[in-house]
Amino acid sequence: MSTTAFQQVLHEQRSALLTAWINHVAALGDQHGSHEHALDALLRSLFDDILGILERQPTATLTLEHEESLTLALRQLVGEQARHGSSASTCVNVVLTLKHLVSAQLVTAAEVTLAEMSWLEQVFEQLTLLTVTAFVAIRERQITQQSLSLLELSTPVLRLWHRILLLPLVGVIDTVRARQITESLLEAIARYEARVTILDLTGVPVLDTSVAQHLMKTIDAARLLGTRVVMTGISPEGAQTLTKLGIRFADVISRATLRAGIAEALLLVGQQIAPLEGKRG
């Protein structure tokens, strides 16, 4: 089979195209202040794969999913870009830059047929699709990881003073988080032999029956370990809503602010915060 003008251009301009592409991508990356030489190797392997496909005989349907080396290189590239905080459009631009470079070369060369140009379109359409899919997959994985780490971060039990613990609750309290909160709290109560635990609800957006029930269970379990629970930070609207709902936190000490709650907790363990002068005198 004889080489067509299309294939000849690709062959002759191969190294020029690659250099131009690497430079363009470097320029794209420089805007984010992140250019690494590992990237060049990745681009080179991707370039070889893409040109390999372009040089093939055009087919009516094209799927790139079975091109393992290409898919792998593209995923790696997108992964690198995403790690540096690049947007989806930057990633697509990397691919489209090569398309522009190739088509610029082809336009100057004569005897390139329409079928060949549409093959170019087809290949890069598929590449763009693949890039976007890879980007979305990476982002989704990031989101899952973040929500997991958020879950871990969001239940800190703080040791406020000898035998006083503080549990600031922030955000949505669902069954999974409630279980985690209870677990880490009970463990801390046992470890520090806490006499008082302050449960601060300032950061809880909605106190409905489900949240209230989770809290009640946590409080009951904490009590079994011998700690008194002081609830703080219920807003005036929250208090009104809770009573309308008919929820009663019987026998739980509650204070409007964390400040008042700390004072109460100190009182319960027989301590107080006093000015230095008073102590000297």
Partner: peptide, 8 residues
């Protein structure tokens, strides 16, 4: 208060 009421 109404916002909290409805949201709840």
């Amino acid at each position: 208060a109404d916002q909290t009421r409805l949201a709840t």
